[in-house]
């Protein structure tokens, strides 16, 4: 019995792992002016983030069409899988999960569409755990249990360079209440169960990075870790070097995909982690 695994581009799974496990990734869409790009492949992250501050009107994002999910599912079934696990960005923050759910309804066969409650490697780590379980021959129930277990231990936190992009996105209600930008502040946010919480704020990047690291330590021992950034590779590498001695697992370093970056802005830093269970 073969199980197929589908996710979307906001899971930020590195290409190498996507290929290793044969994960099907459905890209979200990033719209710049009249042009629409496939998230992750249509425009390079470097180019996107460099242009982002000057883009007027600012870019928008769209969920993949229901049809693009149907196509993936269909191809998988044709290739011989009997069940599909399809895991996606938090339903509270994006329409991707809903698109997948609608697509799944048109199939008679079993498709398990899962709301990860997360973004970026917060989804990615759930999907990777599923991929590993599938590769080791697990039953679908075991795969789903594995995802559920990871989901409960998944943390994502980030230091944004400004609140502006998140406010503009209109997806996080409290950002509207924060009276706009009198002082330039760098917000610290945490994503839990599909809700973006305000972890605090910092005036300088130095203070912010320190607080971010404190947040990571407060989570406790981790079994999976990714250092996330939005086009701040050097800062992310430096953070990685500082953390390495304290870490049991080698972390991934990920330049966050454009569909998320459009809503958080460039120069952000963050962590995605799964704590030891």
């Amino acid at each position: 019995m073969k199980i197929g695994l589908v996710t979307d581009s906001t899971a930020d799974i590195p290409d190498e792992l996507v290929h290793r496990y044969g994960i099907r990734v459905v890209p979200a869409l990033v719209n710049i002016g009249d042009q629409s790009f496939e998230d992750g492949t249509g425009i390079s992250r470097e180019e996107f983030y460099t242009r982002l501050p000057r883009l007027d009107p600012p870019p928008t994002t769209s969920a993949p069409s229901v049809g693009s999910f149907q196509e993936r599912y269909e191809n998988l079934f044709k290739s011989g899988v009997s069940e599909i696990v399809s895991i996606h960005a938090a339903n509270t923050l994006s329409g991707i999960f809903n698109g997948a759910r609608l697509a799944a309804e048109s199939f008679q066969r079993r498709i398990h569409v899962i709301d990860s409650g997360q973004l970026t490697l917060g989804i990615g780590f759930q999907a990777l755990a599923a991929a590993e379980a599938i590769a080791s021959g697990a039953l679908v129930e075991e795969v789903l249990a594995r995802i559920s277990s990871i989901r409960q231990r998944a943390h994502v936190a980030a230091l944004l360079d400004t609140l502006e992009y998140m406010r503009r996105s209109g997806r996080v209600s409290w950002t509207r209440a924060v009276v706009g930008g009198i002082l330039n502040i760098k917000p610290l946010v945490e994503l839990r169960d599909g809700v973006v919480h305000r972890l605090g704020q910092a005036r300088t990047r130095g203070q912010g990075i320190q607080r971010l690291t404190e947040a990571l330590q407060a989570w406790g021992p981790v079994e999976r870790l990714a250092v996330l950034h939005t086009n701040a590779e050097a800062a992310a590498r430096q953070l990685l070097e500082e953390l390495k001695p304290k870490l049991a697992v080698p972390p991934l370093v990920v330049n966050v995909t454009t569909a998320i970056g459009a809503h958080v802005g460039p120069n952000g830093l963050g962590f995605a982690a799964v704590t030891s269970g």
Partner: peptide, 27 residues
């Protein structure tokens, strides 16, 4: 202002105040 960076309205008041006090010397 430095202390305000540590405000989390839903947080534990003791912990938040403690962080604020520590942050005074950040500036």
């Amino acid at each position: 202002l430095s202390a305000m960076m540590h405000l989390n309205p839903e947080g534990d008041v003791e912990k938040v105040a403690g962080k604020m006090i520590k942050s005074i010397d950040d500036v």
